[in-house]
């Protein structure tokens, strides 16, 4: 597995935190993260067509990824309240990639998801939804800078 040191600082912090927690505390931290996922900016609330569905996730989650003129990545996501795990996954990506450069996002290792150490509490098939989020985000970034 990739070393924590090879992750962008916010993702490294999140992964380190998860690795230090017991199962019950991991659930609580995930809930905290789910609650921290901000609402979509208004422009998307009126334009759901700008959003892309992440079909790897079991619950409807939609993302929007843009790279601005300073080469900074902005990530937005929305997922239903009754799917807190999906919201938590989206929130991790939100906190982890926002403000990074396009190249930094592309360099995030895909085994990052395994580094969160969630296998004990969440079925591996569900955890793969999180990988879907990350892979799609990277693809969007790649498209944006192409």
């Amino acid at each position: 597995m990739t070393d924590l040191a090879n992750l962008p600082p916010v993702l490294a912090e999140i992964a380190e935190e998860f690795q230090a927690l017991d199962s019950q505390s991991k659930l609580e931290y995930l809930i905290e993260l789910a609650e921290e996922l901000p609402d979509l900016p208004e422009k998307f609330q009126d334009h759901p067509d700008l959003l892309e569905r992440v079909i790897e996730c079991q619950s409807p989650v939609y993302i929007f990824v843009e790279v601005d003129e300073q080469n900074t990545v902005h990530f937005h996501a929305t997922a239903p309240r009754e799917s807190p795990t999906t919201r938590a996954f989206a929130s991790i990506v939100h906190q982890g990639v926002n403000g990074l450069t396009a190249e930094e996002v592309l360099a995030i290792p895909e085994d990052f998801v395994d580094m969160l150490d969630l296998k004990e509490i969440i079925s591996p098939l569900r955890v793969r939804g999180m990988l879907g989020l990350l892979v799609r985000t990277k693809r969007k970034v790649r498209e944006a800078i192409a």
Partner: peptide
Amino acid sequence: DEDVLLYET
């Protein structure tokens, strides 16, 4: 539940 966090919320 399917969603492992729902009970806690």
